[in-house]
C-alpha cells in the first residue's frame, strides 16, 4: 500500500511538473495544485499507513496512526488553499493586465 501511494505520488508529481513547465498560466496554477495534493499524500505515507486507529484517544485503544504527519498536513492543506488563491488571482490579473497568458510573451525586458 505504501509503495503504491508513493508511486501514485510520483505520477502526480510528474503530471504536475509537466503542467508547471508549460507556457500557459492556468496550467501552471493547476500544476501547483496537483503537486500540493501529491506532497500531502507523501507526508502522510511517511508516517506509516493503516498502522492503527485514528489518533483520537478513546477507552481501550492504545495503537494509533502517527498523528504528527496529520497535523503537518492539516496546516499544509489550509496554506495550500491560500497559496492557490493567491497564485490564481496573480495569474488572472497578469492575464487581464497584459492580455496574454503566454509566458514567453510575458518575459520582462532584458537588463532590467
Amino acid at each position: 500500500m505504501d509503495t503504491l501511494i508513493v508511486i501514485l505520488v510520483g505520477i502526480l508529481v510528474t503530471i504536475g511538473t509537466y503542467l508547471i513547465l508549460s507556457r500557459h498560466l492556468l496550467r501552471i496554477v493547476l500544476g501547483t495544485s496537483i503537486i500540493g495534493h501529491a506532497v500531502n499524500l507523501l507526508i502522510i505515507t511517511s508516517g506509516g499507513l493503516k498502522t492503527g486507529a485514528a489518533p483520537l484517544l478513546g477507552e481501550k485503544i492504545t495503537d494509533f496512526t502517527d498523528a504528527l504527519p496529520q497535523a503537518l498536513v492539516l496546516t499544509a492543506i489550509v496554506i495550500n488553499f491560500a497559496v492557490t488563491a493567491l497564485v490564481l488571482v496573480l495569474c488572472y490579473r497578469a492575464y487581464q493586465g497584459f492580455g496574454t497568458d503566454d509566458l514567453e510573451q510575458l518575459r520582462g525586458e532584458e537588463h532590467e
Partner: peptide, 12 residues
C-alpha cells in the same frame, strides 16, 4: 479538542 474538528475545520 476531543473529536475530529477544531479551529481550521470549524472555520472553513
Amino acid at each position: 479538542h476531543h473529536h475530529p474538528g477544531g479551529g481550521f475545520i470549524g472555520g472553513l
